[in-house]
Simulated assay, not measured.
Amino acid sequence: MANPNLELFPDTEAKSTGVMAAQQIKNAIDQGYVLPDRPIEPVQLQPSSLDLRLGTRAYRVRAGFLPGPKSTVLACLEQQGDDVVELDLSSPQIFERDHVYIVPLMERMRLPKKVSGKANPKSSTGRLDIFTRLITDYGMEFDRVPEAYIGPLYAEISPRSFSVRVHHGATLNQLRFVVGSPSPSDRSIRDLHKSQGLVYANDGIVIDANVDKGLTLSIDLELGNDSGPVGYIARSTSAVIDISKTNHYETEKFWKSIERPMDGRIIIEPNHFYILASKELVRIPPDYAAEMIAFDPVIGEFRAHYAGFFDPGFGDGNIQGVRAVLEVRAHYVPFSLQHGQIVARMIYERMMQVPDRLYGRELGSSYYNQGLTLSKHFVRGL
């Protein structure tokens, strides 16, 4: 296959390595690096990623897996025998809470050398506590498409808090295309904050950045003057959420609000799911993309985020910065969080080009001006 840098990126201003922008992803699709079962729809193209669609089949399995270097995903499914139940997604199907499903996606890959991919759940997927990971044939790690990979893609899906109704064509995860091996560093993040500003206070004033193996973010649990809740905890319910419906479900049926604590502390319990927010307001400059590290045992035995991608232009509005919404689960034991405690890290990666569409109102982004916001499936303002 021809050199992707020459074919895809004729613009001399494009960087030789980095994350592909929307217009470059479109060019890659046109040149056959993505082979979809149905034509790619414009709504799938995000500023720095491509939404991936569920195919017409799904397999309920006893346990998730990685195929390893000598096997395909379908061969692994065959080995599970009677433990596999096939579902037809050409009509809506319910994915039950605490079950695992493997779904072939509509998009296949035919990547050239120097081009790889990495995936993450979409924001709405994470805020519904739907554990979603990408798998490839012969794959040895989740959410990674190796350089020059040719073959199908699969999603491993496991709803954790709520059973959900899904159908073919639904998008639960997204894929970034990376050219070369750009290596973000703490020094580059510090320099970027100094020149452009990455974190802000509530009044939109830039604040000092704590950079240690990425830009660190802390939790907002302050009483202050804000009368709204500090977060939400998922209720135990047998109700089903149809992921195709937006602004539809009443918040109170699925979530219990967490009032702001007098002492700036809350305890998160194992086997419960929390929606919280960062203390800092975050900004992603137009020529950068960011990814939040989902789990870091150094800062606590909990997972702080499912949906790790932050698009170029996030928080880049009239008032600089937007809170990062955190999807939190304690792993083993109850864990006490206090206001200002570090809970996550963000890595900034250079875009190859500034995207021709940026995150925000004009793109129709669901969370462009978010505070503490639940997924788009719930009625806003409740």
Score class of each variant (00 low, 15 high):
K122G: 05
G224V: 08
A148D: 11
D98C: 10
T251R: 00
A170M: 13
G300P: 15
A239T: 12
G81Y: 02
E222C: 09
Q79N: 11
Q174L: 01
K213R: 07
Y274F: 09
D226Y: 14
Q31F: 12
A307Q: 05
Q341L: 11
V343W: 01
Q44H: 09
D143T: 15
H99I: 03
T251M: 00
V34K: 00
G197A: 03
L276H: 10
I319M: 12
K26V: 12
R357A: 02
P112W: 06
P47L: 03
E96G: 10
A201M: 12
N318K: 13
S161M: 14
K26S: 05
I233H: 07
A330S: 14
I219Q: 10
R350N: 13
V230F: 01
D242I: 01
V230I: 10
S195N: 14
S181M: 04
G313A: 09
L52S: 01
D82Y: 05
F162I: 12
T216P: 03
L382M: 06
R350P: 06
F65L: 06
N3C: 04
Q353N: 10
I284F: 03
S227W: 01
P92L: 07
A344K: 04
F310G: 01
K279M: 01
Y359I: 14
F65D: 09
S278Y: 00
V328N: 01
